[in-house]
């Protein structure tokens, strides 16, 4: 079965990012297809590469990134939500005349249409938020 997963909260602040990761892993293990994971609201913070949690803690952003690499996942950060919160890929940073970008490998920035397309194309849409 084809899933789109929406993640609406940032890592560490809320458990929803962890739950979404566990859910996506479990779905993949069962042979389901993850059509897309869409990050919205503070969920865009799952895609930063500039996060250094304590050594004994999990590294949620890296776990998403690794999972994307392993399973060729489409991890999409909402551009409107990202711009509000300071998440930029190299192209967008340049376009905005900024001096840095901070997206971790495996994520891409795109529009809200990607969420709706996921809803249309997938058999199930599951929302994780607060």
């Amino acid at each position: 079965m084809k899933f789109t997963v929406m993640v609406n909260e940032g890592p560490y602040q809320h458990q929803s990012a962890d739950t979404a990761l566990h859910f996506v892993r479990a779905a993949l293990e069962k042979g389901h297809e993850i059509f897309r994971v869409f990050f919205y609201h503070d969920g865009v913070n799952n895609g930063t590469r500039i996060a250094v949690p304590p050594k004994d803690d999990r590294l949620i952003q890296q776990e998403w990134s690794n999972l994307a690499k392993e399973h060729d996942l489409d991890l999409v950060i909402c551009i409107a939500a990202a711009q509000r919160r300071g998440l930029m890929d190299a192209a967008e940073s340049k376009r905005q005349g900024l001096d840095a970008d901070n997206i971790i490998e495996g994520f891409r920035i795109s529009g809200l249409g990607q969420l709706i397309e996921g809803g249309i194309q997938s058999d199930r849409t599951v929302v994780f938020g607060d």
Binding site: Y40, A80, G111, L112, G113, L115, I116, I120
Partner: peptide
């Protein structure tokens, strides 16, 4: 919280998909 505003932003984009 920002949810109401960002919900509305999704609705406006979604309108283009004729659902």
């Amino acid at each position: 919280t920002v949810y109401a505003l960002e919900s509305l932003e999704v609705v406006l984009i979604a309108a283009a998909f004729e659902q």
